[in-house]
Design a protein around this nucleic acid. Structure first.
Length: 582
RNA sequence: GUCCCCGUAGCUCAGGUGGAUAGAGCGUCGGAUUCCUAAUCCGAAGGCCACAGGUUCGAAUCCUGUCGGGGACACCA
């Protein structure tokens, strides 16, 4: 097997050849659609190695019943030497058994490809931009950012492994009003560092202690020359400095989770480059932006100060949104949406596909941004696939009690706290053992106390066991070898088949853009390994190392080594350490 | 009132874009350790896949509606 095609894809191709022959024979109609034909491992392994639904899908166009068609397919498949048995089951499934040599060849491919086993060319090098985290640069990363950060990072790894050219991007919201607040907060800390008693931090400013070092730094750099100046004099400089310092904090927080972005895009720079104006001009030319009046908010009482204003509006209602959306505020400044729209166009310049990872609290803005990107990219002759992945909230618990977090009070659990308390691997794996669009609870106390029940240790333990076995074997002068692979029995074959699914899992997960599938796959693979291992408790002949039988031992060690490689490759995608001992 | 997610074993969750008899972990009950790492394994019990319709050879999965949980609904970011 090469790394260009999974085993399953290879057999799918063989079956398609058979189907094409049946078209030629007139059994199937010309132009029959094979798109729904699937070739997959059956859910129940006792059914065989591969199963296809071809006969069921195509029975209707062939004007026959599934089992009759299946017989014709089976007859043709008899010509394929590596298919040792094919039988028709249930409503018309065709179950295939493969020559064990096929599986052993796949097994040999694992150490041969090493860290590249499972790597796919499916992505064909297309450039995918994954934007994730993009937390406001106003403070350290806290738990609210954690899930999106991990999910985005694992997804980026996954897509890269599946053959895409991935850019990991962070959008720095350094242009909005919250950055003015940050600058004012920093100025206050600056005055404090100069010896002034600043008292209570006023409402609306950021009260956290993390700004103290920034104030001290500024005091040291600048002395007291900005101390009593009017705000307009110092604000721009303080903004830039404070944002830079906050980004340093954020980057080091992300590093604790093993996350590193390739691109940090600044909203302020976007404005400076005139991107929003360009976008607006184009949209106006195409009647997608017009000057209009916003409707009053529905369903609840309008705010006291609500009044109709004429604003430049994007026609998002044409794309299924409830309301057209302003791209500029009444004071002439760009709205977040106006800038974001331009930002996505900027990203699209260097990418073939865009993915955003957002918190669920931004769900309401998905329609408008998708509409805008669709309109702009299609209009400019380069339609670009654009996915927004919503990551649901994490309810943080401690011993069954919800943990309250408030950013404004400056009292929140940071990612740094989290990593220190439970470790990077636990944080990452836990966040990935749930599909991102479902809400999850993360009980701090549980993860720490019951850490032995945590799936991450289960998978790591499997890897550690393998490493330990290989170390032990080396002491005995045994090493992995392919010399006697044919001595491997049914139980070993089951393990091999599970491991051989890894490339397929990678492709399927990448296609669906769901990294969590890899976490579940690794858990299953680890379970299969542990189960095999424990056979050796009852019968010493089933152990990896059977001292009287060098050939069998070395074949099993080859298997163990290969499983270890698959675990490592999968864990690498998830960004979790494959430990060698526990 | 509108929009977006979710609803599967007592609890926490999987379920590969429609397939075969519904799957794990925890918890409960019963077993395995003179042995390559027991952070492991084997077995048992536990289900109206929220509910009602629909689509078809076939639905936990797709469509519609209802109920329940969470989130978001002016120019904030």
């Amino acid at each position: 097997m090469s790394n260009t095609k999974t085993l399953y894809a290879a057999y799918a191709a063989k079956i398609e050849t058979v189907l094409a022959q049946l078209v030629a024979d007139g059994v199937l109609p010309q132009g029959a659609n094979f798109a729904n034909v699937a070739v997959e491992p059956p859910r129940d392994p006792s059914h065989g190695d591969l199963a296809t639904n071809a006969a069921m899908v195509l029975a209707k166009p062939a004007q026959t019943n599934p089992r009759a068609l299946a017989e014709q397919i089976v007859a043709k498949l008899a010509a394929e030497p590596t298919i040792t048995n094919s039988e028709i089951a249930g409503p018309g499934f065709i179950n295939l058994r493969l020559d064990p040599a096929v599986w052993l060849d796949e097994l040999k491919a694992i150490p041969a490809l090493g860290n590249d086993y499972g790597r796919s060319v499916m992505g064909e090098g297309t450039r995918v931009n994954v934007e994730y985290v993009s937390a406001n640069p106003t403070g350290p990363m806290h738990m609210g950012h954690c899930r999106g950060a991990v999910v985005g990072d694992a997804l980026a790894n996954l897509l890269e492994f599946a053959g895409h050219d991935v850019a990991r991007e962070y959008y720095i919201n350094d242009a909005g009003g919250q950055v003015d607040m940050l600058a004012r907060s920093a100025h206050l800390r600056y005055r404090e560092a100069l010896g002034e008693n600043i008292g209570e931090i006023p409402q609306g400013l950021y009260p956290g202690d993390y700004l103290k070092p920034v104030g001290e730094y500024l005091a040291k750099e600048l002395g007291d020359k900005h101390k009593d100046e009017p705000e307009a004099e110092w604000l721009p400089y303080f903004r830039a400095e404070a944002v830079e310092k906050m980004m340093d904090v954020i980057k080091s927080d992300l590093a604790l989770l093993g996350i590193h972005h390739d691109v940090f895009a600044s909203e302020a720079a976007l404005h400076a480059a005139g991107k929003p104006d360009e976008a607006e001009m184009w949209l106006r030319e195409h009647d997608l932006v017009y000057d209009g009046v916003l409707e009053a908010p529905k369903g609840k009482a309008p705010p006291e100060d609500w009044e109709p204003v004429e604003l430049p509006l994007f026609r998002s209602t044409r794309f299924g949104d409830d309301q057209d959306r302003p791209i500029k505020k009444s004071n002439g400044a760009w709205t977040y949406f106006g800038a974001d729209l331009a930002y996505h166009m900027q990203k699209a310049e260097n990418a073939d596909a865009l993915i955003d990872i957002w918190g669920a609290d931004h769900a309401g803005t998905v329609k408008r941004i998708k509409a805008a990107v669709a309109a702009l990219s299609e209009g400019q002759g380069k339609p670009i696939p654009f996915d927004v992945k919503l990551v649901q909230m994490v309810q943080l618990m401690r011993g069954g009690e919800p943990v309250k977090m408030s950013k404004r009070s400056g009292n929140f659990i940071t990612i740094a706290d989290m990593v220190e308390e439970v470790g990077k691997d636990v944080v990452r794996f836990t966040m990935l053992t749930r599909k991102p669009e479902a809400q999850m609870e993360f009980d701090f106390a549980k993860v720490i106390e019951a850490s032995k029940d945590n799936p991450v240790f289960y998978v790591q333990y499997a890897h550690a066991r393998i490493c330990s076995t290989l170390r032990k074997a080396a002491e005995l002068g045994l090493s992995p070898s392919t010399n006697a692979l044919n001595e491997l029995g049914e139980e070993e074959m089951a393990l091999i088949k599970r491991a051989a699914q890894f490339p397929r899992e990678i492709e399927a997960a990448a296609k669906a853009r769901e990294a969590h599938r890899i976490a579940f796959y690794l858990y299953d693979l680890a379970a299969e390994l542990h189960a095999f291992w424990n056979l050796g408790n009852d019968s010493p002949q089933k152990r990896f190392i059977v001292e009287q039988d060098k050939g069998l031992s070395e074949a099993r060690l080859f298997l163990a080594d290969s499983i270890g490689q698959v675990l490592r490759n999968g864990l690498r995608v998830l960004g979790v350490e494959a430990v060698e001992s526990m």
